[in-house]
Design a binder for these strands. Structure first.
Length: 502
DNA sequence: GCGATCAGAT
DNA sequence: CACATCTGATCGC
């Protein structure tokens, strides 16, 4: 087993698992990781453990105390003593379970999927099996159903365990870790923002400890998920809270409404920044907490940590969308403008159209409820509930395709004669459209025209680079695209390059 | 029937 | 491609 700070652990051999069953990096690099890395020798795991942060100082967790700190705003005072632990596993009270079987296959085989599941890795598609362990003891019933009646034998599956990159060392905190049931040693669960892949596992049955998040996110958690209020601890942005002896501050993340960066300052002076999901910007660098002192550990949203991802500033895309909408309406006054969106996010795209064209925003009742809950009067006052009253509709992204929009047009019979739709997404990444928005070619079919526009709520590669080079953190832990060794190694190489000489 | 959770689709 | 779900099947209660 790996010991924190040590380099003496044996390599667990079943490859490609260089994350162990608890989602912790193992030492040294697994054969798979070495093989995949260019030079070899600087695998994710080694990198994770080497330099920068003393991982041996994890504090022994104190028992959960719901709502503590939520009311005790800014109340300084160091309670509960620290305890030096020698091992990550020890500190988190984790007894390393036996290795799962069937872990011997190559990276692209079907087994890969179950390895992802075993690692509890977030983004690589299907995240996994059995999120919440319903048994309070943390013991596993020993059998999980498997569809199609295939191979899996009884007892082969265990619940996902929380991966290391969701845990904050030296604290009893996790971030966006709700799908693992009770996380041992965790007495405060942070939620960075209200998107499914981050709150997954949160239901009205939640009972594993207090949930800290922004006030807006808190409202959504209560409203949409019916989580018991006693567990929800809203925090204001830019306000210092002392939670379990750690000073915590939420910063605007420039992602979706309510999204926050989470800044931790420990008693020993170490500072950690978890970006959740964010779009880095110059103005973000001006925040006082990011100006002074070095960050020891940066948990980074690496969604687009690849130079192939380039996209324009959001303002440029919005400008393009507005100009395009104007043009179509001029040519055909009976045009329906549609903007696709997931649950929350992309509001500024349709808000801008609404303001520029002076039309209200129509969307269905469930989205109206959510949008009103933001408490943004500029948005709320423009929302209408009659689909005939506005030529601007917001629909679920999944329904923004030719087939659906054609039907939609028919249902609104005669009120509109054509549809102009926008799909805002970060991965419209052709070299051409990255720099020249006017080169974007819509897809047209009869009376329906659809534009994919590069409106991203994640950082582009260069924005990530600028942010990391500005911060000069002692260490970077990627939180996205960590599901395969090659990708991890590539990202670490970028970090190293950005931080060389620091 | 209902909520949770899966695989697969988008 | 990969975002953040969404759908439909299945399971436990």
């Amino acid at each position: 087993m790996a010991t924190a700070g040590g380099g003496d652990a044996d390599a667990p051999q079943p490859f490609p698992a260089d994350l162990d069953d608890n989602g912790f990096p193992a030492l040294p690099s697994s054969p798979a990781s070495v093989a995949a890395s260019s030079g070899g020798g600087s695998g994710f795991a080694e990198d994770f453990y080497s330099s920068g942060t003393d991982w041996s100082s994890l504090r022994s967790p104190s028992p959960p105390r719901p709502l503590e700190g939520a009311s005790g705003v800014k109340a300084k005072g160091k309670e509960n003593g620290s305890l030096v632990q020698s091992s990550l596993f020890q500190a988190w009270g984790i007894a390393k379970p036996p290795r799962r079987e069937g872990a011997g296959a190559g990276e692209s085989s079907p087994v890969q999927r179950s390895l992802f599941q075993a690692w509890g890795i977030e983004r690589p598609k299907r995240e996994g099996v059995g999120a919440a362990d319903p048994s309070p003891s943390g013991s596993w019933p020993g059998r999980k159903r498997q569809r199609g009646g295939s191979e899996q034998q009884a007892g082969a599956k265990r619940p996902l365990s929380c991966p290391f990159y969701k845990k904050i060392p030296g604290t009893p905190f996790t971030v966006d870790a709700f799908r693992y049931g009770e996380v041992e040693g965790c007495s405060a669960y942070f939620l960075s923002h209200f998107h499914y892949d981050h709150y997954g596992g949160l239901t009205k049955k939640w009972c594993h400890g207090p949930i800290y998040c922004s006030a807006l996110t808190a409202r959504l958690v209560k409203m949409c998920l019916s989580v018991n209020s006693e567990y929800i601890c809203p925090l204001e942005l830019d306000t210092e809270y002392v939670i379990e002896g750690v000073t915590v501050t939420l910063l605007e993340a420039n992602h979706c409404p309510g999204a926050a960066l989470i800044h931790f300052r420990l008693c020993d002076g170490k500072t950690y920044l978890h970006t959740g999901d964010f779009r880095a910007s110059r103005s973000m660098q001006l925040h006082p907490l990011l100006q002074k002192g070095r960050i020891n550990l940066l948990y980074l949203d690496t969604t687009y940590c690849n130079p192939k991802y380039k996209f324009p500033p959001q303002e440029d895309v919005i400008d393009f969308v507005v100009r395009t909408a104007r043009r179509y309406l001029k040519k055909q006054p009976k045009t329906l403008i549609v903007v696709g969106a997931y649950s929350i996010g992309k509001e500024n795209v349709y808000l801008a159209i609404s303001q520029a064209l002076e039309v209200p925003i129509y969307t269905d009742a469930s989205r109206r409820r959510i949008l009103h809950s933001f408490g943004w009067s500029d948005l709320s006052k423009r929302i209408c509930s009659c689909n005939q009253s506005s030529p601007l509709h917001v629909l679920p992204l999944g329904s923004v395709n030719h087939e659906n929009l054609k039907k939609y047009l028919e249902i609104l019979n005669q009120r509109f004669l054509s549809v102009l739709a926008f799909r805002p997404t970060g991965w419209t990444f052709s070299e051409a459209t990255g720099k020249q928005l006017d080169l974007i070619k819509p897809s047209s079919n009869g009376s329906v025209t659809i534009y994919g526009v590069p409106y991203s709520e994640h950082s582009s590669f260069t924005e990530l680079r600028d942010f990391v080079m500005f911060l000069r953190p002692l260490k970077v832990i990627p939180t996205v695209n960590v599901g395969n060794a090659a990708s991890r190694d590539k990202m670490q190489a970028y970090f190293q390059e950005w931080l060389k000489g620091s």
